[in-house]
């Protein structure tokens, strides 16, 4: 089961990285969101995986999952949302002011060398 989680983290990271490297703003935002999923699951799994042992104190419980990574990830999820929202609105603003949705705001026009292309 651990293998599944690890592979999922890997796949989400890879997909996120690929999308983040695109030239238009929207795929980059989608990629960032994927990356933040990957990071959250990664952080969460630092507390190891346990089934059926939520960190709610109960005399009958046999064990608990690690609550600390969970608390950290909980706020990370909300912050990731705030970041996504900010970046997408930044992308809208860039489109408004620059007239295109290229991440460098140039649409490949300003720099003709390989840095400018997508």
């Amino acid at each position: 089961m651990e293998t599944l989680v690890a592979t999922s983290v890997g796949v989400m990271t890879a997909c996120g990285v690929y999308l983040v490297l695109r030239a238009s703003t929207f795929p980059v935002v989608v990629g960032l969101t994927l990356l933040s999923y990957a990071v959250n699951v990664f952080l969460f799994s630092m507390g190891r995986l346990k089934v059926g042992a939520p960190a709610v104190i109960d005399p009958a419980a046999e064990g608990y999952s690690d609550p600390l990574p969970q608390a950290l990830v909980l706020t990370a999820i909300v912050i990731a949302f705030a970041m996504t929202a900010f970046v997408i609105v930044l992308a809208l603003k860039a489109r408004d002011e620059l007239g295109n949705d290229h991440v460098d705001g140039a649409g490949g026009k300003l720099s003709s060398d390989e840095g400018g292309e997508a």
Binding site: E2, T3, V5, A6, T7, V9, G10, V11, M12, T13, A14, C15, V17, Y18, L21, A38, F42, S45, M46, G47, R48, L49, A55, Y64, D66, P67, L68
Partner: peptide
């Protein structure tokens, strides 16, 4: 690049998950 980084992330996660933990929790 993406495949490399993704594999790294997967290996790292697996390396952690297969080890025991002495948490501060």
């Amino acid at each position: 690049l993406a495949t490399g980084i993704g594999s790294g992330a997967a290996l790292l996660t697996m390396a952690v998950l297969t080890r025991d933990l002495s948490p501060i929790s």
